[in-house]
């Protein structure tokens, strides 16, 4: 049975018809056409599907789409504030080798954003803990941690009004 829901995705109210038993992940990828969010396991084990739901990071494969009626969802497609202006996390991941195959990257970027929103000045251990549920099989995490640390510095400078020039 399909249900009509209205979910705000990346700032835009989207009316979606979803099966009651379908996950938010499937709704995003299929009904909403946002394929940036990835499916690595579909059972909450890998973090590839991480999105931000009403301010908190979740595995989209573990959330029923129907439950997000009226909610706010941010996906990787909504991480940039505007086309052409990347989030500092995206810049750092690009420059510091935070992504290789890129399949884990959307989930890790969203998890990292949630982490930095909550803790703008994390230690390396806090970064490791923050992304503990995200499997990356390519990088050994070294450069992911470098990139998150670097983005945190940039964000703190921006917050201080320093901006990015």
């Amino acid at each position: 049975m399909k249900r009509n829901i209205t979910t705000t995705i990346n700032g835009e109210a989207r009316e979606l018809a979803v099966e009651t038993f379908h996950s938010l992940l499937d709704a995003l990828r299929n009904a909403a056409g946002l394929t940036g969010t990835k499916k690595g396991c579909d059972v909450g084990d890998c973090g590839a599907c991480t999105v931000i739901l009403d301010g908190a990071p979740v595995c989209a494969c573990l959330v029923l789409a129907a439950e997000t009626d009226g909610c706010n969802v941010t996906t990787i497609e909504g991480l940039q504030s505007a086309p052409g202006s990347l989030h500092p996390l995206q810049e750092s991941f690009m420059m510091l080798g935070g992504a290789q195959c890129g399949f884990c990257t959307p989930g890790i970027l969203m998890m990292a954003k949630a982490l930095l929103d909550e803790n703008p000045n994390p230690t390396d251990d806090e970064i490791r803990f923050g992304i503990a549920g995200n499997i990356c099989r390519c990088t050994g995490y070294t450069k992911i941690i470098d990139a998150i640390r670097d983005a945190a510095v940039q964000l703190r400078q921006e917050a201080k009004g320093g901006g990015k020039s």
Binding site: Q80, M94, G102
Partner: peptide, 22 residues
Amino acid sequence: SVKRSDMLEKVTGAARYAGDLT
């Protein structure tokens, strides 16, 4: 270490993998 040619797509979620095709 130039900016990799595949990175922009990958950090914005725009990169197309076979499973993204409809």
